[in-house]
Design a protein around this nucleic acid. Sequence first.
DNA 1: TTTATTGT
Length: 313
Amino acid sequence: MSTSKMRNILTIGATAISAFYLGTYTNRLQNKDDATEEGICRLPGLPFFSTVSAATLVPATPAPGEVNLTATPSRISQIMKYGFPGLDHVRSHSDYVLSYDRRNRVPHWVFEHITADSVAKNDAVDRSKCDFRADESIHPYFRAQNTDYRRSGYDRGHMAAAGNHRLHQKHCDDTFLLSNMAPQVGQGFNRDSWNRLESYVRKLTRTYANVYVCTGPLYLPHKEDDGKMYVKYEVIGPNTVAVPTHFYKVIVSEAADQKLHMEAYIMPNKVISDDTPLQVFQVPPETVERAAGLLFFDQMNRKQLVSVNGKKV
DNA sequence: TTTATTGT
């Protein structure tokens, strides 16, 4: 085991990670050659695919230079090109797709498709004009409110980052829904190392034509003094919003030649020294899948996959 | 630069 791998495991908790089988992602994918064909048929009647026959009645891909302001079927298909990680309470917004965890009042996962254009500086989009607000599409029993976060000591941390959605003010606004938030340690995490990871993902668009990123929370077990394993996490506010122990990102970068490069990261929701290299937090994608109960990019053709965490496969 | 909060 390499030094960096060992440091990584120590950082995110040895007991948590050793509980998961550290196989290779490619092993599972090797049986998935025909995954693409079965993909569409597998989808249940989600609201945005409700009537396939109606698809032609809905505005399709916008003309070049124009921007989708609503979650059109074509845009959702583009964002979700490589498959849905899960299907629990899926919501499609103008520029990202989310699955909501009603029990924990935070997302299960959010999916984004970003390009050099969508992350480019745009004076027409002003983050300071965006307001954090409750998501009215979530049943009130399960809806997080701003009061849950107030004086909790935690930031309202974006899962789909505001900085990834600069094509239009509406795209930026939509990322401020509380259904896209989870409680994050502010100084030392959200505003620092997690922000570094988000910036790194944006930087990938300088090299790759399309970047697909899935982000979400984890609740990892740890061993306590009695020798038993427990999952323990704080909850905040009147609506008992869960404070995840860790967060993940699974990224697929698509090159102009259709070759795919996959990366996966798990970071603990705690103060992380700014000089910690992001590589320290790399894990096999399968580790995130087992921890989250989700399958990422399962519609990806493995023949296109050329690297995982920077190593050839 | 972007990420955010504090009865400021």
